[in-house]
Amino acid sequence: MKSHSKQVLFGLYNDEEELMAAISGAKSKHLDIMDVYSPFPIHGMEKVLGLEESRLHIVGFIFGMIGTLTAFLGMTWIFTSDWPTIFGGKPYFSLPAFVPIIFELTVLFSAIAMTVVFYIVCGLGFGVENPILDERITDDKFCLAFQTNGLSGSDVSNIKKFLKESGAAEIHEKEV
């Protein structure tokens, strides 16, 4: 979070359909949306809001491959060069027997990396306290927020007017 404070003007809607319509309205009026908050994921919102597709799967793939290589190269090195041992008359390099652990480490590395990266890029983590615009956003309110720092009075009242017209049940201003 940035240290300087933000002036936020936001409208609370009672329904996700109203929120979606309001986002489209704001986009067509070229209003600069700061963020949208909702109690649950709303499908189709990334399109209306113009969010880029998440690239978490790339992280998953890269770290999965690192897991694969760690397991494969590790076991190969240990059993063929560091401490070659014969188990049950099988060759030192017995690839089929390595498969289960290669698979497990692929999944393990990929899952941990994706989850950790998810929390890092979202700026979430134990002890993080992000400003909360309204406590009912995690309950049943849908929030459309605008940053008003440096905006002229007429711009602000313009946004207020837009929020009212688009059906916001409540309009608040808050410094975070």
């Binding site: 963020d35 909702s38 994921p41 990334e46 994706m114 998810f118 979202c122 002890g127 995690t138 929030c143």
Partner: peptide, 17 residues
């Protein structure tokens, strides 16, 4: 709850994850 706010981008990534 790790500072969860319900921001659109967070939900999108959450779903994706």
């Amino acid at each position: 709850s790790m500072g969860w706010t319900g921001a659109a981008k967070h939900w999108q990534r959450h779903e994706y994850l």
